[in-house]
Design a binder for these strands. Structure first.
Length: 198
DNA sequence: TTGGTGATGTTT
DNA sequence: AACATCACCAAA
């Protein structure tokens, strides 16, 4: 099956649409001569100034600057003193909207992912490799230096491989770790995927 | 399998 | 003081 890099126009669409369409796409990370690949199974949309749970809610800052670029850039942030999470920026510049990658199914480079995740010698299932936003970043070696990476580059990018997730397989639910008062059903995941978080 | 807690540092 | 989290352990 041929792999086609997602074009800029994919990202320049309404954020909730992009979020749903990201399910089933492949995340590819190239480091030196190695390629890591995972299929996206869970995401969350963050709608900028309309969304009290979004980093962009109070406008542009040093931290969230990348969110205000045009779609197709990677926004990486540091949280809880030790973790990184990564987002795909959406829509046109100035909107501050993005989609958080929450879980992928490991496809290629699994040995390397286990090494990055420090699974060496531990009897852990591959499902625990990338079933959380900070786990993805650890497994794919995504950190501060990758903040602002253009997803049309060859370092980190997304591809479609022909397999499409039917609408009936996409479930929506409340986002994780967001207080009830400001929450919407903007988490999307592939029904029944054993690689989603819980 | 579930729930509680400590780790750890940036942002507001 | 809160935080878009994770790993570990104890309890059931």
């Amino acid at each position: 099956m041929s792999l086609k890099k997602l074009p800029r126009s994919f990202y320049l669409r309404p954020t909730l649409t992009v979020a749903r369409d990201l399910l089933g796409k492949l995340l590819i990370r190239r480091i030196d001569d190695e390629q890591l690949m995972g299929r996206i199974v869970e995401v969350e949309a963050y709608l900028g100034e309309k969304d009290a749970a979004s980093h962009a809610y109070r406008g542009k800052t040093l931290r969230n600057e990348v969110m205000f670029r045009e779609g197709g850039y990677l926004y990486v942030y540091f949280t809880y003193g030790m973790h990184y999470c990564c987002n795909v920026v959406t829509e046109e510049a100035g909107k501050g909207r993005a989609v958080l990658l929450r879980a992928v199914e490991p496809v290629e480079g699994i040995d390397t992912m286990r090494r990055f995740r420090k699974f060496r010698g531990k009897k852990k299932d591959d499902r625990e490799l990338t079933n959380g936003p900070a786990k993805i970043c650890q497994a794919f070696h995504i950190a501060r230096e990758q903040n602002g990476t253009d997803l049309l580059s060859d370092e980190i990018f997304l591809v479609i491989d022909g397999s499409v997730i039917p609408r009936s397989m996409v479930l929506s639910s409340r986002r994780i770790g967001i207080s009830e008062a400001i929450e919407h059903e903007w988490r999307f995941h592939v029904r029944g995927s054993p690689f989603a978080s819980r």
